[in-house]
Amino acid sequence: MTAVLSLDRLGVRRRADGAALVTDVSLAVEAGGTLGIVGESGSGKSLTLRAALGILPPTLEATGGIRRDGRAAMVFQEPATALNPTLRVGSFVAGTWRRHHPGASRAAARAATVDLLAQVGIADPAARTRAWPHELSGGMRQRVMIAAALATDPRVLLCDEPTTALDVRVQARILALLRGLIADRGMALVFVSHDLAVVASVCARIAVMRAGSLVEEGPAARVLTEPRHPYTRELLEANLARRLAARPKESA
């Protein structure tokens, strides 16, 4: 099988002083594969994702190999700032769709937009195309972001903490939506989060990053049960549910 996205000894460094922010990250995800990247703030997980999509800030540069087979699209953490506040959400999704379907008519774009909004679970999608971003809840906005990402027909969907800003019930629904979309479309997923439990609920493979380097990568079931790196063990030990389970019974 060929990888839809592969990183070969990827590095990210600051142009000004050459400081290495990400070092030697080699990862690959195949069609339909799901890869989670876990790490704390400053571990380089988001920079790795941005380098993979080629959207690093101009002050940084990527080194090493980045190979994408087909389109990649990204869903960001904060849908309130990722959406254009001056565009109705329908225009935003339709504009994205038309850029990736040159020559298509406005009517076709409108139909595709309604279809995409329906796919991401937005009720009454035709009426919702007229909504402004500020009129939608956080979960709805993130659904619109996912619809815009899908408008590019991506082979791999990159998600950067897409549920961190959301309430736990909304998070559960967005995670279920992502699982469904991946299964239906055979799309690959790279999901970055600081939350091991969230990553474990959508990804078959887990990579753990710390201080700009990859410390461990493997099947989720193996990483969760037999972590090889001390830092992965530390992450698992910090999980409250796990600590509670290990507590003596009488404290309950």
Binding site: Q171, D195, S201, P219, A220, A221
Partner: peptide, 15 residues
């Protein structure tokens, strides 16, 4: 709705 580590997909490793 709370994600748990035990909900990890097991044996579905696709790579």
């Amino acid at each position: 709705a709370a994600p748990t580590l035990s909900a990890a997909p097991s044996g579905k490793d696709r790579q």
